[in-house]
Design a protein around this nucleic acid. Structure first.
Lengths: 140, 140
DNA sequence: TAACTGTCTGCAACAAAGTTGCAAAATATA
DNA sequence: TATATTTTGCAACTTTGTTGCAGACAGTTA
């Protein structure tokens, strides 16, 4: 298994267990974001539902993964870039969901534009999710 | 009951029923967005869960309400402005959620900035949700 | 305003999603 | 390798959301 996996877990003070290695590996080998169900029903693997919930929760807390809110109200998870650390997510990129193939991806190369707010209001975090059709699906 | 309620329902070819009137009234008398649970457990009212689901779904389909995706993955509903009509939401505003009081509101006065996408990608809908602290909570 | 027609409601039963406690198993540390 | 600590997986449960259907209700027409 990829040596990065062991490093990531240890760097976050997490014991290296089989489930954590496998789940983290899914994210390292998939560019697209994954939902809870994608992981639980992954072909060739059988994870306990509870373990998946707890693992994902731990990874988010540690800043290894971040969540992507979607319009249909299903949470997806994606790898954070290296500069996230415990409790402080620095994901100032936005997300794209293809309405044809369902692919969900982080658009790391684009920075979130600044948004205006009413006086006295304080912004903490800005989530942007773009729905549309990805390049691959448009060519079909 | 507010005469606007009757008008809105009739304009959308919906029969005027007690549940629909009451639920719509909640939105007209609350400026903040409401979640399914807010409605179901509204003090003094007892709605059947199924009726609430179906009513909200119908209102969204008709363009009376729109949904707001939230980071914690719970859908909230808010009134659409008048120019939404069946199947075509024109909510090009964004949403603010106060992390102190939980208030969720539509920032109707600000237009969604244009977002950049990779070549060949097509944007259909852009959802922006700002998390932060509202003016009232900052003053406390 | 009575009768008819189509829509809406509420119940029951179910399916899916998420949570909690706990004993056994695995990991980390010394 | 032994011990302390963390993690897993099961069972049982709660919450959330869905479907079918019979009875109730709203809207229309005479």
């Amino acid at each position: 298994m990829d040596s990065r996996i062991h490093d990531i877990l240890r760097r976050n003070q997490l014991s290296v267990t089989a489930s954590r290695e496998k789940i983290l590996n899914l994210f390292l080998t998939n560019t697209r974001a994954l939902a809870h169900a994608d992981i639980e029903h992954k072909a060739g693997e059988r994870f306990d539902r509870v373990t998946v919930y707890r693992t994902l929760q731990t990874f988010v807390e540690k800043g290894i993964l971040h969540t992507i809110p979607t319009a249909d109200n299903s949470v997806k998870y994606a790898l954070c870039k290296n500069d996230c650390f415990e409790g402080h997510h620095h994901d100032n990129h936005y997300h794209f969901i293809c309405s044809v193939c369902g692919k969900t991806e982080c658009l790391e190369e684009f920075i979130i534009p600044s948004v205006k707010l009413p006086k006295e209001y304080l912004a903490n975090n800005v989530e942007i999710v773009v729905n549309g059709i990805c390049g691959a699906c448009r060519k079909k």
